[in-house]
Design a protein around this nucleic acid. Structure first.
Lengths: 147, 147
DNA sequence: TATTGTTATACTCTATAACTATA
DNA sequence: TATAGTTATAGAGTATAACAATA
């Protein structure tokens, strides 16, 4: 879908296309893995965050860019399935902490392994040196963020 | 979330993390742009495909990995909004072709410009040479695919 | 009979609004 | 009064199942 009346594209235009296509491909892969476990992308992101953190509901919602009510429903369903649990925050009587159950921890570990396996055929199109170059470039692009 | 009992990660493990994080960041940006126009990611993908193609319903569904009934609803809502239209296929009396309306074409052009603008601050973290290197590596990774 | 598409139904995800409890 | 969280309600997105029309 090139700009119609512009024969000299803006700098980075092709890169944006490549980024978006890569995002679609990557998302499709992890979405498929999630679907096999009846997990939405949002819930997978939540579980990933809970791997090494114990946030409160509002923190989770902000991190994912969702409303707190949406997070309430998401966590309520995950709790019903035994993947996460809620407990009152020790310092603030209004707040609720969220954390993974043992079953949730096992699921995240399994998801992670399956993700590596599913994306392996794609990344193996590059040799080791190019993989490292790509990883370095991507990390410079997105910065060192967590979750 | 490193592999717990493995101090020497599998080849490409860090790259998978970087790819997934990049996908989340990129998806969040285009999702926000879509939300400003009341468009879901799925519908944006459909509109992107229709930019230069006139597929039938089943082709669209297969391309996005959705069921044909799901595509029926998606297209029905988009048609109601005047973004796309349906017409019987000339060769096969069972099939229905889908295509962009004039309004749909204008919307896709606008979305595309907004996507470039929204991702510009991110890609500008790399100089021109590194942008080209990253684009080349990504294209080798995902192949030359369309839509 | 097989394929294309739609309709019926149900559940998840998401948002807006209203509410309760705590600070 | 402001903040944290839940509940109520509604709409979009998705799937499974059943159906109609065409090949």
């Amino acid at each position: 879908m090139p700009m119609q009346d512009d024969t000299s594209p803006a700098p980075g235009e092709g890169l944006v296309d490549a980024l978006v296509m890569t995002a679609f491909v990557t998302t499709a892969v992890i979405n498929r893995i999630g679907a096999e476990h009846d997990l939405s992308l949002s819930l997978m992101r939540v579980l990933g965050i809970l791997w090494d953190r114990r946030p409160r509901m509002t923190e989770l919602a902000n991190h994912l860019g969702l409303e707190k009510q949406t997070m309430s429903g998401l966590i309520a369903r995950a709790e019903k399935r035994g993947l996460v649990a809620r407990a009152p925050n020790a310092e603030d009587g209004r707040a609720t902490d969220v954390f993974l159950t043992r079953e949730g921890v096992e699921l995240v570990a399994r998801l992670r392994a399956e993700g590596q396996g599913a994306l392996a055929p794609i990344i193996e199109r590059l040799d080791a040196a190019d993989r490292q170059r790509l990883e370095d470039l991507l990390r410079r692009l997105i910065g060192n963020r967590q979750g």
